[in-house]
Every structure is written in C-alpha cells, then in structure tokens.
Amino acid sequence: MFPRASSFANQVDGVFWYIVGVSLFFFVGIVAFMIYCAIKYNRKKRPFGSHIEGNVPLEIIWTLVPTLVVLTMFYYGWVGFKDERTVPKDAMVVDVTASMWSWLFEYQNGKQSEILFVPVGKPVRLNMYSQDVIHSFFVPAFRIKEDIVPEMSNYMWFKATETGVFDVFCAEYCGLRHSKMLSKVIVLSQEDFDSLYHNPKALKPEEEEEEGPPPGKALTKVHWCFSCHTTDGSTLVGPSFKGIFGAKRKVMTGDQEREITVDDGYLRKSMLEPNADIVKGTKPLMPSYKTVITEQEMDHMVDYLKTLK
C-alpha cells in the first residue's frame, strides 16, 4: 500500500479521487453513448442518417454543467494547496542544499546529513537552495514537491504523520545522474529524534571528524567533487582521485590520444578547462570551475589530491 505519511496526504488523495471519480462518471457516459449509437444506428440497419443540426438548450446545459463541475475541482485543489503554502510558526527549520547530484540537509544546531531526519508530528520547514541547476525535492509518501532554483530561496513544509523511511527523489531533470539523486526521509519519534539531534557524535559535518583535516578535503567536498570522483579507486562519472598524483593517464586532447603524467599543471587545468584533456574512456561532462574556485582554494585542493595514495 502506498503510504500517506504526511498531514497533506489525505487532502491530496481526496482531491485526486474526487476529480478521477467525476471524470470517470463523464467518461463512462461518453463511451457508453458512443457504443450504443454505433450499434443502434449502424449503417446495416439505417442507410440514411437523420438531419439534426443541433439543440440550443443542450449546448447551454453542456456548457454550464462542466463549468460548475470544474470550478469545484479548482476549489478543492486550491484549498489543499493553501495549506501547503502556509507554514506553521512553530515549524522546525532545515536548510536543504541540492547540487548535481546530491542532497545535504543542515539543521539549526549546525548538524548535517545526507539523509533527512525529522520528528513525527512536528511541522518541518525546508529552506531550499541549489548550487547549480534546477532540482526539485519530492517525497511521494508526503504528496509534496517544490523546485529548487539557483539564486531563489524556495521553501516548503510538511508534517510527517507516521514514523518510517520514505523515498526522496529529485523531480526536475538535472543531467547525467538525475535518476541517482535520491535520498530518504527518516521519520523518528520525538524521543529518538531528540537523542540523535543532541548526540554530539551524530550527524556531524564530516570535516570536523578528523583532527586538523587538510583544508583541501573540505573544499573538495564543498565543491561537490565527490559526486563524480571517488577516493577508493572506483570510477563513478569521472576517474577516481585515488593515487592520481604522478599517475600516467591516457587522455584525449581533441581527437588526439596522448599519455601524460598527472602533475600540478594537469590538475589545475582539469578544474579550469575540464574538457581540454579528458581521461580516455570518460565523457566530457564536467563543468568548468573557472568562475567558481579561487587560486588559493585550488592550491589547497591540489595539496589534498596529492595525499590520496
């Protein structure tokens, strides 16, 4: 069974089934009438048709009745929607950052996670930001969705009504790994949520975990390099960072294949002009960071990449 896990679900389902029900009524009528006529007035029985040009009262009826019916549909849709855009004052706020192709949820006390944890029965307001293109936060079990547009601060809210784990999808096409831009909402009881929320070891931003981490690692994460490049040697979208410095790589420069040794210059160039020398077998998908990364940040990131043996 498809869960109805938010306070909106019943209302949305009500609107949906109301419109489907009314539509079905008209649809069955239309189809039944077509079949009836096709049989009753078949040419085998009647070589000629009757000359009927129209009927004004009928035209008025089938203009007015659908008008009234669709206005009720509009009304129910509007009422449900009004609730979806009216955020309760006591809502807990979570900042959502979407980027190609991952989610990051940041709570009011600074904790971060890639899966959204919320308490049951408490309104949650999501303030949503995109780092690159348009994404859309969609939880089918909650019946809600809102686009996340770069440089726009879109928001949404919901109140989960049952505990459990529910799918989160990106619903606005965002490129290569759009269909992998998934997450979960985990709805916990208030107690469970509180103990997680106040546990100093849980939901910690990753860069605080290690003692004195190289600033390059944090930057690499901030710029979402790990969405496409792993540190464990496996190929995601681009080549892995593992052992990258000093490695010999076959690259394509235009149509020319050549072998290079990865050095400072190559790493820098790959951030600024990622598609100039592409590692053979990967696709030219990486956007340029020319306007995004400073010279100093690049120094740190190159230092960090050198450490990944």
């Binding site: 609107v15 539509s23 008209f26 669709v70 549909m73 129910y76 849709g77 449900g80 929607f81 619903a171």
Partner: peptide, 24 residues
C-alpha cells in the same frame, strides 16, 4: 476515447494540490 482520458487527467493536473504531487 483516448483524448477524453488525456483531457480528464489534465483536470487532475490542473488542480493545485494534486499537481504538486504529480508534477514531473
């Protein structure tokens, strides 16, 4: 027959609360 199904499902999508779920 088919266009009626297309049109009537369009009504579902025209209603705000239902569309927020079904959009995209």
């Amino acid at each position: 027959f088919l266009f009626s199904i297309g049109g009537l499902t369009g009504l579902v999508l025209g209603a705000l609360a239902a569309d927020v779920h079904l959009q995209d």
